[in-house]
Structures are given as C-alpha cells and as structure tokens.
Write a protein that binds this DNA or RNA. Structure first.
Length: 191
DNA sequence: GGTATGATTGACT
DNA sequence: GTCAATCATACCA
C-alpha cells in the first residue's frame, strides 16, 4: 500500500510517480500507465475557479478520490494531491489490465485487452467507478494501491482534450506501453 | 428561468 | 477524418 504522505506532494510529481503503480478496486485493475496533473492555478483544471459542488473533493484532503461525470456519459477518476484546499488532483487515464480481466470484459462488453482501460471513461467503466466513490480515501478497501517495484521509463507530453493551457507537458505515460489512450512522444522526461 | 460547454467515447463517411 | 450521445455545471437574464 502507498505511504500515507505519497499524495501530499506536488501534483505533477505525483502524476509522474503514479506511472508503474498498481491500482485495484475490489480486486480489479492493473498497472497505471497514463496520468495527467491538474492544479488550482491551472486554467484547464476544474478547480481553477474555486470550490463548487462538483469539485469539492479536489479541495479536500489528499489521498482521496475525485470522481466526476464527463460529457454526461462517462465517469473519470482522479486522486487528490498536495494539501487540503490546494485543489489539485491527478487524472487516471489508462491502466494495463492485470487483475480481474474477466470482470472488466463483462463490464466493458468487449474482449480486446488493449481497449479495456485505455482512457479515463473506459477505465472507470472497467473498474466500476461511479459517483459513490467521490471523496473516498484510496488507502483502504475497496481501493488497493501499491507503488512501482522498479523505476519505470516515463514519457511526457501535452494533456488530452482540453482547450486551455494546452502546452503544459503534464501528461505522463509508461514508455512503449500499448495500453495508452493515445500515443505519447518517444521523448523521456528528465529526472 | 434558459442555454452553451465539456479532463470522452463509439459509430460512421 | 466527422459527429452525436447526454447531463451537471457555469454563466447570463
């Protein structure tokens, strides 16, 4: 399980460090291969204009889930970072399925492993994430989160699907993974 | 009260 | 490549 203070750090750092970590919800999940960072002072972030009913969890304690409805259709799962009131969170965009793959196939209504969790909406459908988990601590069941066992090769690029702050390279992915929602540049981040 | 918009996806030309 | 689905939120009156 993640150290308790893992999320109490800069949101961009946490987004990068989550690559290679393992996330399970009720035993279903896999290796996080794609994330994005969002911050209170970031015009693309839901928290940019301050707390609202929807983004309340973003302004709560770190280490909790922020779940929101996207386009009225999909759910998206974030992990709150930094400190209470900071309004920062990491969007989980893709997972390499390793556990409970049969359950994911039923929930997603498809066979192909590459598309089970390749995107924030698909990921939530495969892991059965809904509004009920908004604000839930992720350091206890049904969540199980374990850090990467070895330092993964990470690539960075601009975030997907936003219209503001489009140039910030706050999207991170596992280099060479075939489970990404979309390709990332082959350029590695500097450590 | 009305209405435009979106951290997406899947179907279709 | 284009486009509709579908609804909570944000903004305006």
């Amino acid at each position: 399980m993640m150290p308790q203070d893992f999320f109490a750090r800069d949101v961009v750092t946490v987004a990068r460090d989550l690559i290679g970590a393992t996330l399970l919800i009720d035993g279903v999940g896999g290796i996080i291969v794609e994330t994005e960072a969002y911050h209170h002072q970031d015009p693309a972030s839901h928290s940019f204009n301050g707390p609202t009913r929807r983004n309340a969890a973003m302004f709560g304690p770190p280490g909790r889930a922020y779940v929101y409805r996207s386009y009225g259709i999909h759910w998206c799962l974030n992990l709150v970072c930094e400190a209470e009131g900071s309004g920062s969170a990491v969007l989980l965009r893709a997972i390499e399925p390793t556990e409970g793959v049969a359950a994911m196939r039923v929930r997603r209504g498809m066979e192909e492993a590459r598309l089970l969790c390749a995107g924030p909406g698909r990921l939530c459908q495969a892991l059965a994430v809904t509004r009920e988990m908004d604000g839930s601590p992720v350091d206890r069941p049904p969540f199980a989160l374990a850090p990467a066992t070895s330092p993964p090769a990470i690539v960075a690029g601009p975030r997907i699907g936003i219209s503001r702050a489009v140039d910030l390279p706050w999207r991170f992915g596992l280099a060479g993974s075939r489970f990404l929602s979309r390709p990332l540049p082959a350029r590695k981040t500097l450590d």
